Lab assay of single mutants.
Amino acid sequence: EHKIILYENPNFTGKKMEIIDDDVPSFHAHGYQEKVSSVRVQSGTWVGYQYPGYRGLQYLLEKGDYKDSSDFGAPHPQVQSVRR
């Protein structure tokens, strides 16, 4: 199983989107239009992308907690697509 939770604010606060065993080419299409400032990967390895359609900067997200976007190497809290 692959499970990831994306949070609007640092330290796992604010609006969140939970994804289980699915690739998401556009967070906006899924109704999530917030920034991504923290991430909790509960299982599996994911790649987050700066822009929709798996474009832009890529961020490797392995199991663990990323309490701020800088923890996974993002210069800005901008992640708009993700895949396993």
Rank of each mutant, 00 (worst) to 15 (best):
S69W: 10
Y66A: 06
T45F: 08
D23S: 03
Q42P: 05
P52M: 04
R40N: 07
D22T: 11
K67L: 13
D71M: 14
S70H: 14
Q50P: 04
D65V: 07
Y59F: 08
Y7W: 10
A29H: 13
G53E: 10
Y59L: 05
P77Q: 06
S37M: 14
Y32K: 14
H30C: 10
E1A: 04
Y7C: 01
S26R: 06
R55Y: 05
S38E: 03
V41T: 01
M17H: 14
V36A: 11
D65Y: 01
S69F: 13
H2D: 08
M17S: 10
L61R: 00
H30R: 15
A74T: 15
E34N: 07
S26C: 08
V47R: 02
P25W: 05
R55W: 04
Q50G: 02
Y49G: 04
L61K: 12
Q42L: 15
G53S: 03
L61Q: 02
L60I: 11
Y7G: 04
H30S: 13
W46N: 04
Q42F: 06
Y59D: 03
Q50S: 05
H28M: 14
G73D: 09
V36Q: 04
P25H: 07
L61P: 01
E8M: 06
G53F: 04
S43M: 06
D21A: 01
L57I: 13
G53W: 06
V47W: 07
Y54E: 06
Y32C: 11
V41H: 03
M17L: 11
A74E: 15
P25L: 05
Y59C: 11
K16S: 11
A74Y: 01
E8C: 07
L6F: 04
Q50D: 01
D65G: 09
Q78C: 15
V24C: 15
K67Y: 11
E62K: 10
S70L: 12
V39A: 05
E62M: 04
M17Y: 08
G64W: 01
A29K: 12
G44W: 00
N9W: 09
G53A: 06
I20M: 14
Y7S: 01
V39F: 15
I4R: 00
P10Q: 07
D71Q: 14
F12R: 12
R55I: 03
K15M: 05
H30D: 07
Y66M: 03
L57P: 12
P77G: 12
L57C: 15
V79P: 07
S69D: 11
L6D: 00
E34M: 15
P25Y: 04
R84I: 02
S43F: 05
G31S: 06
A29P: 05
K16R: 07
S43T: 09
A74Q: 12
V79Q: 03
G48N: 06
P77M: 06
S43H: 06
I20E: 04
D65L: 06
E34I: 14
P10F: 02
Y49V: 03
H30V: 12
I4T: 07
Y54C: 04
K63S: 09
G31A: 07
V36F: 08
I4M: 15
H76N: 14
R40W: 05
E1S: 10
P52T: 05
L6N: 01
G64M: 02
P10R: 08
G31K: 06
D65C: 07
K35C: 12
K67P: 10
Y32A: 07
S37T: 12
E62C: 05
G44Q: 03
N9H: 10
P10V: 03
S37C: 14
P77H: 06
E8L: 00
K35I: 09
K63T: 10
Q42N: 08
G48A: 10
Q50R: 03
E18K: 03
Y49R: 00
V79R: 02
Q42T: 11
Y66W: 10
D65H: 09
L6W: 02
Q33A: 14
G44F: 03
Y66S: 08
E34C: 14
L6P: 02
V39L: 12
Y32W: 10
L57M: 13
G31Q: 11
I4S: 01
Q50I: 00
Y66K: 07
D71T: 08
R40E: 06
R55L: 06
I4C: 05
R55S: 10
V41G: 04
Q78I: 08
L61F: 13
T45Q: 11
G53M: 06
Y66G: 06
S70Q: 13
D21W: 06
V39C: 09
R84C: 05
P77V: 12
Q50T: 06
K3V: 01
P77R: 08
A74C: 11
G31M: 06
V39I: 11
V24R: 10
D22Y: 01
V24I: 12
S69P: 12
R84H: 03
V47T: 04
K67R: 07
A74F: 05
L57Y: 12
Q33T: 12
I19F: 00
K63R: 08
V41K: 02
Y49S: 07
Q50M: 02
S70T: 14
H28N: 15
H30E: 13
H76V: 13
S69G: 10
G64K: 03
Y66H: 04
K63G: 06
I5C: 09
V24Q: 04
A29V: 12
I5S: 08
L6Q: 02
G31H: 11
F12I: 06
R84D: 02
E8V: 03
V79T: 08
Y7A: 00
K3C: 09
S37L: 10
Y49A: 06
Y32R: 11
F12P: 00
A74I: 15
G48S: 08
S43I: 03
H76Q: 12
A29L: 13
E18R: 07
Q58A: 11
R55P: 03
L57N: 11
A74V: 09
I5G: 06
Y7D: 00
L60Y: 06
T13I: 08
M17W: 08
F12Y: 09
R40F: 03
A29W: 09
E62W: 06
K35L: 07
H30G: 09
